[in-house]
Amino acid sequence: MKILRKIAIVLVPFYWILTWLYHRCFDWGLLKSKSFDYPIICVGNLVVGGTGKTPMIEYLIHLLQPHFTVATLSRGYKRTSKGFVLADETSNSEIIGDEPLQFYKKHKNLIVAVDESRVRGINKLLKLNKKPEVILLDDAFQHRKVKVGFNMLLTAFDDLYVDDILLPTGNLREPIVGAKRAQIIVVTKCPPQLSEAQKLQIGSRLKLHEDQSIHFSSINYSENLINQQSELSLNSLKGSPFTLVTGIANPKPLVDFLNGKGLEFEHLSYKDHHHFTEEDIKLLATKKMLVTTEKDFVRLQPKLGTLTFLYYLPITVTLDNASEFNKSIEAYIKGYYSIEAFDD
Rank of each mutant, 00 (worst) to 15 (best):
F141E: 08
Q142L: 07
Q142W: 11
H143E: 04
H143R: 09
V146P: 00
V146Y: 05
K147G: 12
K147L: 13
K147E: 14
V148C: 15
V148L: 12
V148S: 15
V148N: 14
V148E: 13
G149D: 02
G149A: 07
G149L: 02
G149T: 06
F150I: 11
F150Y: 15
N151P: 10
M152R: 10
M152W: 12
L153I: 15
L153A: 11
L154W: 08
L154F: 09
L154P: 12
T155P: 13
A156D: 06
D159Q: 13
Y161R: 08
V162A: 10
D163Q: 13
D163L: 12
I165L: 06
L166P: 06
L167S: 04
P168S: 08
P168E: 08
T169H: 06
G170K: 01
N171C: 03
N171L: 07
N171D: 09
L172Q: 03
R173A: 04
E174C: 08
E174M: 05
P175M: 02
P175F: 03
P175W: 03
I176A: 03
I176P: 03
V177C: 00
V177H: 00
V177Y: 02
G178Q: 02
G178S: 09
G178A: 10
A179H: 13
A179K: 15
A179C: 11
A179S: 15
R181D: 09
Q183F: 15
Q183M: 14
I185M: 09
I185A: 08
I185Q: 08
I185D: 01
V186K: 05
V186Y: 07
V187W: 01
T188E: 00
C190I: 00
P192D: 01
P192K: 11
Q193Y: 10
Q193F: 12
L194H: 02
L194D: 03
S195V: 03
S195R: 04
E196V: 10
A197S: 09
Q198H: 07
Q198G: 03
K199V: 01
K199L: 01
K199I: 02
L200Y: 14
L200F: 14
G203C: 09
S204A: 15
R205W: 08
R205H: 10
L206I: 08
K207C: 15
K207H: 15
K207T: 14
H209P: 03
H209T: 14
E210T: 14
D211W: 12
D211M: 11
Q212D: 11
Q212F: 15
S213C: 11
H215P: 02
H215Q: 03
H215I: 04
S217Q: 00
S217E: 00
S218N: 04
S218G: 01
S218E: 01
Y221V: 02
Y221N: 01
N224L: 10
L225N: 05
L225W: 06
I226P: 04
N227P: 03
Q228R: 10
Q228P: 07
Q228W: 09
Q228C: 05
Q229H: 11
Q229A: 07
S233C: 05
L234W: 07
L234R: 04
L234S: 03
N235H: 05
L237T: 05
K238M: 05
K238R: 13
G239W: 13
G239C: 07
G239Q: 05
G239V: 05
S240H: 12
